[in-house]
């Protein structure tokens, strides 16, 4: 974990309500896909957690992709190149790529898509045959599709209204065979994947956070292996560990 000042190199609209934020600073603590950073925003008391979408250790920059959903992300979208932000980096456990097998499947929904890009890149570097299924509400909201294709992944996009790609949900478009899955997205999607998936896999979960580094117990969840902090022992959990509460 590291707290540092980062300079905005890019903060641009890439889809309806979705921004790509590239930050230059110390990225040495960012080690695994699925980890997140926690950004302090001027005028807001708590930090905002965002998943690492890409990291370039050579150039010292980290990219996150965020959706404007409230006042904090709205304020973030107004910041321009050259402005600085205080960022806590290297948070969370991240995905375990050692369980991928040769044909991993990545399933992302909406604001849950970004961490899967860093994961796909890591898996491609390992020589895996990566399939990606991305779900969005509508065509205007689709993002990162080209970037996943450029990595050499097999990409399927679904939209709920059928305005682009396969009409329906990600679970309507899962490939027939895969060795393991990795997923991130809204809870209803995660639950559907949990029920549908044929293999073992890993889920990235979300919760409102006080600190993001294990100090406040704000983000706890029950799992089959005990109480876990989503920010510290998570956000990534194995399929077998998860207990859905509702």
């Amino acid at each position: 974990m590291k707290d540092g000042i980062y300079t905005i190199a890019e903060n641009s609209l890439i889809a309806a309500g979705v921004y790509k934020l590239r930050l230059v600073g110390d990225v040495s603590e960012i080690r695994k896909p699925g980890q997140f950073i926690n950004i302090r925003l001027p005028g807001f008391y708590l930090r905002r957690p965002l998943s690492v979408c890409d990291v370039d250790h050579g150039a010292g920059c980290v990219t996150v992709v965020y959706k404007v959903v409230g006042k904090g992300t709205q304020a973030l979208s107004q910041l321009g190149t050259g402005e600085t932000l205080q960022v806590l980096s290297g948070l969370g456990n991240g995905y375990d790529v050692s369980v991928a097998g040769d044909k991993p499947l990545l399933i992302g929904g909406g604001a849950g898509v970004p961490p899967l890009y860093f994961l796909a890149k890591t898996l491609k570097d390992m020589g895996k045959d990566v399939a990606v299924v991305l779900g969005f509400n509508t065509k205007d909201e689709v993002f990162l599709e080209k970037e996943f294709r450029a990595l050499g992944c097999r990409v399927t996009v679904t939209t709920v209204d059928g305005s682009y790609g396969v009409k329906g949900f990600v679970t309507d478009a899962l490939p027939a065979a895969y060795s393991c899955f990795y997923t991130c997205g809204p809870e209803p999607m995660l639950k559907a994947v949990w029920k549908t998936a044929q293999t073992g896999g890993q889920f990235s979960l979300e919760e409102r956070m006080g600190c993001g580094f294990g100090a406040c117990m704000g983000c706890s969840c029950r799992t089959k292996t005990g109480y876990k902090r989503i920010c510290k022992e998570g956000p990534v959990f194995n399929k077998e560990e998860i207990l859905w509460e509702d």
Binding site: F44, Y45, L46, E207, R208, M209, G210, C216, M217, G218, C219, S220, C221, R222, Y227, E245
Partner: peptide
């Protein structure tokens, strides 16, 4: 103790609310 169900945290102007429930 596990404490309270989540969400346990809410942001406020210059502060926060927690309902961790003594986990």
């Amino acid at each position: 103790r596990f404490g309270n169900p989540t969400p346990r945290i809410a942001e406020c102007t210059a502060g926060m609310i927690n309902a961790v429930g003594l986990q």
